[in-house]
């Protein structure tokens, strides 16, 4: 699949991903002469496509990146959600192809083979397919409806989820949300009371692009179809204790805020 970004430093490279979920300070975070990562799960950046949300920390970090280049242990490319001065400066002076503006580092997993065409500003993740879905937070008396997925499910078997499903061809995310709620719970909803930018969840070679919505459903009682085997109305705190699909807590937090 292709992800669009923005050129920070031009150039093109292919390599395997090493990813950090947190902002990175090159000073302290990476050994300039060996490429060893001192943060996250460790590992080494040499020859890899280094993916992290954004830079932070000391401006000397730019020179640590130069040090990596001098020692031949620099990453072959850098992908950020949003570039800032330190990493952009380091990438330019060290001639490391770099893009920013990818929607989320959650799209990537360690070991993915990725081609970064930073001159054009696009990234290709090999062998990964993106599927667009919706996920709705139904709220009644301050509690959220959670559905139990059967063990025979293809994706996320046995876990608790929001009211979710794929967006069909020709359908807008909002239309899909309304349809999925009707199909899976029998509840008719009108307009969503809130929505947020898509979140990204990797499950093997599938990248789920999830559009979250919030609907207020006072007095509603769900009638399940065969897709789920149980339901619960729960508080925000209870959600975090359940075995849920990744990012459910983040979405619920945002929607109940």
């Amino acid at each position: 699949m292709i992800v669009n970004g923005r050129t920070i430093m031009s150039g093109k490279a292919t390599g395997k991903v090493i990813k950090l979920d947190e902002p990175l300070s090159f000073l302290g975070g990476v050994d300039g002469s060996t490429g060893d990562l001192r943060v996250g799960n460790g590992g080494n950046v040499a020859g890899r496509v280094l993916v992290f949300p954004k830079g932070k920390g000391s401006t000397v970090g730019s020179f640590v990146m130069y040090d990596l280049m001098v020692h031949g242990v620099a990453p072959v490319a850098i992908i950020n959600e949003s570039a800032e001065t330190i990493v952009a400066t380091g990438a330019v002076i060290s001639s490391i192809p770099m893009v920013d503006g990818v929607p989320s580092v959650d799209m990537f997993e360690d070991g993915d083979t990725v081609t970064v065409d930073a001159t054009v500003g696009v990234v290709e993740i090999e062998g990964v397919t993106m599927r667009a879905t919706v996920s709705s937070v139904l709220v009644k008396d301050g509690k959220v409806l959670m559905l139990k997925r059967p063990d025979r499910c293809h994706s996320f078997p046995g876990m608790w989820s929001l009211v979710s499903g794929k967006i069909e061809e020709g359908e807008s995310p909002e239309e899909a949300a309304v349809r999925e709620i009707r199909e899976e719970t029998g509840i008719s909803v009108g307009k969503p009371s809130a929505s947020m930018d898509p979140v990204y969840v990797r499950e093997g070679d599938t990248l789920w692009q999830v559009y979250p919505f919030k609907f207020e459903v006072p007095g509603a009682e769900p009638v399940l179809n065969e897709e789920n085997e149980g339901f619960k109305w729960v508080s925000r705190d209870e959600v975090s204790l359940m075995d849920t699909v990744k990012d459910t807590v983040t979405v619920v937090d945002f929607m109940l805020r």
């Binding site: 300039g32 401006t59 000397v60 020179f63 640590v64 990146m65 130069y66 040090d67 001098v70 002076i93």
Partner: peptide, 16 residues
């Protein structure tokens, strides 16, 4: 310009 002390820029900065 900043980045003048060897203490702050280190060998990476010097090589640059």
């Amino acid at each position: 310009l900043s980045g003048a002390s060897y203490k702050t820029i280190g060998d990476g900065g010097l090589k640059y």
